[in-house]
């Protein structure tokens, strides 16, 4: 796959992750905790999949180290958000 295709793949994946996060927020704010957590987990899985994809890749659309650092930061934030929600069952 060429670099442009790789870039497009990454964009589409990020769009999918953003959609999952968006849905998670909507559901959580609507009090649908289980479904919200499920969407959040989907987003987390999406980020993890991206990390696996770009680890060791030479055709990453951005400098691989920066890209992976960013993805790890996103993963950390989303995982922490989920942990807070799971620790506070009545929060939503």
């Amino acid at each position: 796959m060429g670099r442009d295709e790789e870039a497009m793949e990454l964009l589409i994946s990020i769009a999918g992750i953003m959609d999952a996060v968006r849905e998670a927020v909507s559901l959580l704010e609507a009090g649908q905790r289980d479904q919200g957590l499920d969407r959040l987990s989907r987003a987390i899985n999406g980020v993890q999949a991206q990390i696996r994809t770009w680890e060791g890749s030479r055709d990453a659309p951005l400098p691989p180290r920066e890209l992976l650092e960013e993805l790890h930061s996103v993963l950390e934030e989303l995982t922490a958000a989920r942990a807070v929600l799971e620790a506070e069952p009545t929060a939503t």
Binding site: D4, A7, M8, L10, L11, I14, A15, I17, M18, V21, A24, V25, L28, E29, P61, L62, L67, E70, L71, S73, V74, E77, L78, A80, A81, V84, L85, E88, A91, T92
Partner: peptide, 29 residues
């Protein structure tokens, strides 16, 4: 009461980073 502040901040920061990644990839592309 809808979402704990910590959750909102964490999600907002994640979204911010994802948006920035999108922006950079799009600019390159």
């Amino acid at each position: 009461g809808d979402l704990p502040l910590e959750v909102r901040l964490r999600i907002a920061r994640a979204v911010e980073r994802l948006s920035e990644l999108q922006r950079r990839v799009i600019e390159g592309l």
